[in-house]
Structures are given as C-alpha cells and as structure tokens.
Amino acid sequence: MMIAIYLAAGKSRRMGIKKLSLPFIEDKTIGSSGLYALLQTEIDYIFVIVQQADDLLWMDAALKKELKGRGEIIICPDSEKGQGFSLRCGVLQAINKQAEKIMICLADQPFMTVEILTVLMTENMTQTDDYIACSHKTIIQPPIMFSKKCFSALLQMDGDYGAKKIIANGSLKGKKLEFSDKLAFMDIDTPADYQQLLSLRN
C-alpha cells in the first residue's frame, strides 16, 4: 500500500497569520490546492496531519467529502515542537495502515501538480532504493517517496526538521527525479512569498 502523509501542522510563524487558509486560485486555498491534486492521483490513502488548534477552515466541504474514504485527518498533539514530530505522527499512522511506501507531501506547495505526483508514484523503486525524491536544479525537494526500510529512520525525526534531513546525512541511498517546473516546488512561508504567488497564479 502506498500512503501519502500531507503535512499541514505548521504554525505559520514567518507568515504571521495562518497561511493554509489564504486564498490561492478559484475556490482553493494554499492548503487545499495540493491536497486536491493528491486526491486526483492513484494514491491508496492519505493522512492529513494537523495541529490541535486547527479549525480546518482551509478545507472546504467538497474537499472533506472527497477525502472521506480515501484518507483521514490526524491531529498531532506534538506538532508545536516542530515538523519532525508531525512527520513521526504520520509515519506511525502509515505503519498501522500497513504501508509499503510513504510519500511525504507539504501543504504549503500550492502549485504542486498531479503530473509530478504521478511520475513520482509510478517510478520504479528497486530493492536498493531507500527513497525516490523530486529535484529541481539538482536540489532535492518534497514530495519524497520512502521505502518501508526507511520507516524506522523517519520515526527518529524530531525538532523542526523535515524528511530531507535523513537524506542529507548520506545514510540512505536513492534517486532523484529532475523536474524543470520551478513553481511546483515553491513553498509559501512569508508575506512576500504570498504576494509572489498572487502575481504568478494566473
């Protein structure tokens, strides 16, 4: 089973307001856009990881309905300690769901496409591959697919670090899929990022 962990539990410190609820395009918000794309793929199941105080206003009724049966929302009580804790929360859920592969996705990448997600999901993961990562200009970017043998390493994550950290230390072997679409990997962290997003969305 291939399971996606959609990390949506950030505190938006640099934005100053809750960024996932900010309007993006049409009826979508920053947080909902990537999730809509993910739901259009053949992923088996999705765990949406949120903080305890999340009012979920960034998800409209149609999105919640579409998620039902194909995934679920998981509250991470330790999310305020950093992204590593949210990641661990999702990995534990995926293990309990008998995952064979886990794809880590970020909720603040509103330009992420169905095409990129599908290429990553359908790339052959050999027995020697610990992971398959997206890459732009040779730099690894989420989403990243991890094999089952990496689950224990992902469970060791803590602090405000993402999945790229365990790749950066060189202990895992994998491959990168190079993509030219810079916008797809744009994450929205600051008011300046959001203004840039608004200028690019059309």
Rank of each mutant, 00 (worst) to 15 (best):
A62D: 15
T118R: 12
S33L: 01
G71E: 08
I25A: 06
I74G: 14
S86Q: 10
F185A: 07
R70L: 01
I139D: 15
L57A: 08
D130M: 03
A9R: 03
D160I: 02
Y6D: 05
M145P: 01
I140V: 10
E123Q: 11
T113P: 00
T126C: 00
S21K: 13
D44Q: 06
T29D: 03
Y161P: 00
Q156Y: 02
Q40N: 15
Q40R: 14
E100L: 02
I75D: 01
Y194M: 04
I5M: 02
L20M: 05
F24W: 05
L56K: 11
Q40P: 01
P143A: 04
I17R: 10
P142S: 12
K11E: 14
I75C: 01
F179P: 00
D130W: 11
L106G: 08
Q109K: 13
I132A: 06
K65E: 15
L22I: 15
A94C: 07
S86E: 04
K164H: 14
L155P: 02
A4C: 06
R88M: 07
V114I: 13
R201Q: 11
P23Q: 05
E26H: 07
G34M: 03
D54G: 07
R14F: 09
T41E: 10
S12A: 13
S152A: 11
I73G: 14
M186C: 09
A163T: 09
Q93K: 15
M1Q: 09
Q156S: 13
Q40I: 04
S152L: 11
S86K: 07
T138P: 00
I144Y: 04
Q141D: 06
P77H: 15
K101D: 08
P191F: 09
L35W: 15
L198P: 02
I49D: 13
K64P: 01
E80L: 07
K164Q: 12
L20F: 06
L38N: 04
I43S: 06
Q83R: 12
D129V: 00
C89S: 10
E42R: 12
Q127G: 12
L57N: 13
I30G: 01
D193Q: 10
I104K: 03
R14K: 15
P142M: 07
D187M: 07
K97P: 08
M103R: 05
M112K: 06
K19A: 15
K18M: 05
K18T: 08
I167G: 03
I43H: 05
